[in-house]
Design a protein around this nucleic acid. Structure first.
Length: 198
DNA sequence: CGAATGATATACT
DNA sequence: GTATATCATTCGA
């Protein structure tokens, strides 16, 4: 079933980040549907988190979707090449978000390979936030889209990973964030066939 | 290991 | 309005 607003609008973004493991990310473009089981996430805890784009309450045209109600998509371009997909959580005005970093392909695999091109194998298809967004055809144009609609959404297929399969650690690529860089806000499934990095 | 690559934020004139 | 530094990464050598 599709996750509804009660899932997204809770305040504990770290808890939501953990719960998103095993959920199924779905996208539909031009009638074609692609789905994947989420296996890696990172939490970005709003104004008090130096690693977040919304740190200190920075509200700009780019970060505006993060301040909307939980259940909104926040997508932005990084390093001039990669689109990164985030799930906005909490109530309106609280810019919490969860970065989806990796997943296991479930449906529309051939289409994902076609979008990724060249050396994309089952292993590398969704390994990393930039790759995942590319495979799902998610770009900055999708930023601000509601996850309750039929363009991008998340389903619960009843998949549960055992507690000891879940690894927790510091987030990737946020060394600039000072002490906040060390926070254990990263969640991933061990021995995932589509890992990003250990 | 390091280049690629462009939108965005911020600091200027 | 213009300039410049920076970036929640990826891929190929």
């Amino acid at each position: 079933m599709k996750l509804d607003s009660t899932f997204y609008r809770r305040d504990d973004v770290v808890q939501i980040s953990r719960e998103l493991l095993g959920k199924v990310l779905c996208s539909r473009t031009k009638g074609a549907v692609t789905k994947a089981v989420i296996t890696e996430t990172e939490a970005y805890a709003g104004v008090g988190d130096r690693a977040s784009h919304a740190w200190g309450g920075r509200r700009t045209k780019r970060t505006e979707p993060m301040f909307r109600e939980g259940g909104t998509a926040y997508v932005y371009l990084c390093y001039g090449i990669h689109h990164l997909f985030n799930v906005v959580t909490a109530e309106t005005g609280t810019p919490h978000a969860v970065l989806v970093r990796a997943g296991q392909p479930l449906e529309g695999i051939e289409l994902m390979k076609k979008r990724r091109g060249r050396g994309a194998t089952d292993r590398t298809l969704l390994s990393g936030p930039g790759s995942l967004a590319q495979a799902f055809d998610i770009t900055t144009k999708a930023s601000g889209t509601s996850l309750l609609g039929n363009r991008i959404w998340i389903e619960d297929h009843g998949i549960e990973f055992d507690e000891n399969l879940i690894a927790t650690g510091p987030r990737v690529g946020v060394d600039y964030a000072g002490e906040d860089a060390a926070r254990p806000y990263r969640f991933l499934v061990r021995h995932d066939p589509a890992p990003t990095r250990e």
